[in-house]
Amino acid sequence: MFDRYVLVPNSLHNEIIDGQVVGFSVKVRAGYYRGFRLALLEDLQLTVDGLTFERKDLALEVGGKPARPLDDLETEYEQTWDFGAPATLHVRKPGGLEPGAHSVIAYERIRVSYFPLPAEYTLADVQVVA
């Protein structure tokens, strides 16, 4: 429903910890039309320049709480991802991304109570690392 807004524009950045580039992050929004409990987030995938990162290398930071691996969120039955609220997706990639433009594709799959199939949202975008 909100596929085209899944990636927050201009939000791709390398992440530096203790002087080391440990990876990068990008801000994402859920494509669904209401806030929902995180357990309903079945999958979140990120593809940069044709390479899809492994699920174990992703962590999602929602609502100002510390980032957590996606597998942990599968049993998060309380905390919500609010409607339209950007969350930060952290990706482990030593060395980070080269400066310049990158093709970025985000994919989300969310379980929906009243629909036979899960809802899927995809957005392909280009973002620039400064």
Binding site: L40, E74, R111, V112
Partner: peptide, 9 residues
């Protein structure tokens, strides 16, 4: 309201 029928995977 939304009944979260599929809360558990």
């Amino acid at each position: 309201m939304f009944a979260e029928l599929k809360l558990y995977k």
